[in-house]
Amino acid sequence: MTVATAQQQGGGTGNLYDVLELVLDRGLVIDAFVRVSLVGIEILKIDVRVVVASVDTYLKFAEACNRLDLESGRNKSPGLPDVVGQVTESGSRGKTKGALSGAAQTVSDVFQQARDESQDSGSRRRTTTRRKEERE
């Protein structure tokens, strides 16, 4: 079990990455204002299930089971490989390497890539600051 709490109070940056989708996808929208184009970041909205039904996933699970110490799984109460303690950035990243979170990892990678691209090729994208013309 791990519980990681990031306090955001007082303007601390906390872990912005974890709430990025709220900043991008929630919050007040007013039609009299134009929104900056989020081209290159909309990849965030792709709906990815944690467990992807694919041959690849199945094989990863089978291998993970093969490595699993079933004896301890049966004799101890289930789920006891208990990771308690301070969760560090690298710690939680390390835990996302399994088959389970492969999809999440992929999305983060894609997102990272999209972010990098948006920094590199910004000149191709225009920030729309004009008021919507269809507004009456």
Binding site: M1, V50, A64, C65, R74, P78, G79, P81
Partner: peptide, 21 residues
């Protein structure tokens, strides 16, 4: 105030759990 909570599975722990069940 808003709090955001995200949950994921610890892979080894959840595998133990489904195997035990």
């Amino acid at each position: 105030v808003e709090y955001n909570i995200k949950a994921s599975h610890d892979q080894e722990a959840v595998l133990h759990l489904v195997m035990a069940d």
